[in-house]
Design a protein around this nucleic acid. Structure first.
Length: 111
RNA sequence: UGAGGCGGGCAUGCCGCGCGGGUAGCCCGUAGAGCGGAGGCGGGAGGAAAGUCCGGGCUCCAUGGAGACAAGGCGCCGGGUAACGCCCGGCCGGGCCGUUCGGAAACGGGCGGUCUGAGGGAUAGCGCCACAGAGAAUAUACCGCUCCGGACUUGAUCCGGAGUAAGGGUGAAAAGGUGCGGUAAGAGCGCACCGCCGUAUUGGUAACAAUGCGGGCAUGGCAAGCCCCGCCUGGAGCAAGACCGAAUAGGGACGGCGCGCUGGAAUCCGAAAAGGAGGAAGGCGGGCGGGUCUUCGCGCCCAGUCGUCCGGGUUGGUUGCUUGAGCGGGCAUGCAAAUGUCCGCCUAGAGGAAUGGUCGUCACGUUGCAAAACGUACAGAACCCGGCUUACAGACCGUCUGGCGCU
RNA sequence: GCGGGCGUAGCUCAGGGGUAGAGCGAAACCUUGCCAAGGUUUAGGUCGUGAGUUCGAAUCUCAUCGCCCGCU
């Protein structure tokens, strides 16, 4: 699972399919350059808090993505998660569940 | 026993699965490897990492000297330090407390303790000091006080003149204070004490202090108003900078055409010291040279365009990148900050950026009979140090202060 | 990383040591058959917060909080 780094790549997702959840907003877009792998980008804005809070949110989302994406993610797709405040202290099991639902929802849209 | 102040260090630990970096060797993949994979091993945020308020190191840029100006900062003295606006010690001022002396008291002085101060200069100059008040920096006669003259209504009267800063009142501030003398009433007018100014001596490295002598006192406050004096400061910042290096636009060299003013060399044409072609060096002028200006120098530039050839910068990669004014301990010097010396130790180096979830256990706190539940601050390195400032749950150690209880 | 600016009435802003102001808005009244416009009057302020300098601070100084902007 690769990481989206460039600003341009993030901007490409601006008008993509979006699925809202309590902890995040998920955006996804088919990217033919990816081949058999998928890419993930995280957006955690300064609005959510200081460095400590932002780091924690980033880590939790990343840890959850490591578990869920290989099982339910769509190959050859760029995903971006825009974090929301709830990601800071939401129960971890619920966070995993949210992410799974979001991915399945996105998959259904493709079909 | 329970509070508060000050100082010091600590900042839940352990285990398993994950995450990022490193790694001698081994195994697998591969034609092979310095590449990739698996496992093992070792290590992985702070006291403030924060704010970016100061001071440095480091790196690059800038042309060298002299002078002036500007801008900004600092400001008692001595020491510490790489340096500082920081730290330590002292001086002086201010607040509070205690004690003592004088006094009827108010209050004033001495000594001690403690807290605290952006603490040079206000007789270098300029400026400001609202309102109130008679008068506010060349001080000032409103009510008063005193004396003299006059009036007639002969009195706690009125008018005029002179003297007077002791009293009233205003104000943040009324131009030394208190007391005695003195006087028409008063006044440093005179005297004593305190304060102030000057000066000498002594003590102290010094700030300054003590004492003597002289001076009736001339010198209101504000410089975090302008300013004066002394001292300091070149600019940018690791996105600095270095190396490797795609495409495309741009750069350099050579040649052609062409090129501010002046100047005219070599060379060529010509028989020629005539004339012509030719245009170099130099001069002048202009521009740039990291705050500005002046002066003396210095360096670079004063077109472009076409053709040929050549090497450098942006994306990316590598590096800078962690051994350092380092940390711990002992000893010595010093009141201390700190310094010296010896021994030991190596403790993050990421790059859209590593620590999350959870099981159990441990510590503390709250709730609860208990089981247990919940909570554990402020907060995340980004080149590195020294400070300052701000945020902060909790418990620990040392020290000081007064309270209550017991002996 | 480096640098700059702002914070004053409900809103937009003046005031740069001496009693906090203007415009718009709000409220009441007048005017009108009613509304608008117009007129008169009134209320409304920890001057972001905390210290310091000063007799006196919105103003000067320092610290702090929040917001905005620029350069690389």
């Amino acid at each position: 699972m690769a990481v989206i780094k460039k600003r341009q790549d993030f901007l490409a997702l601006r008008n993509a399919r979006r699925t809202s959840s309590r902890c995040f907003l998920m955006l996804s877009r088919k990217n033919p350059e990816n081949g058999e792998s998928l890419r993930l980008g995280l957006t955690v804005t300064k609005k959510l808090g200081g460095a400590v809070i932002r780091n924690r949110i980033r880590r939790r989302l990343r840890a959850a993505a490591r578990e869920i994406f290989p099982l339910h993610g769509n190959v050859g797709t760029d995903y971006v998660l825009v974090a929301r405040k709830a990601a800071y202290d939401r129960n971890y099991a619920e966070l995993l569940d949210d992410m799974k639902r979001a991915l399945l929802s996105q998959r259904r849209d493709i079909k």
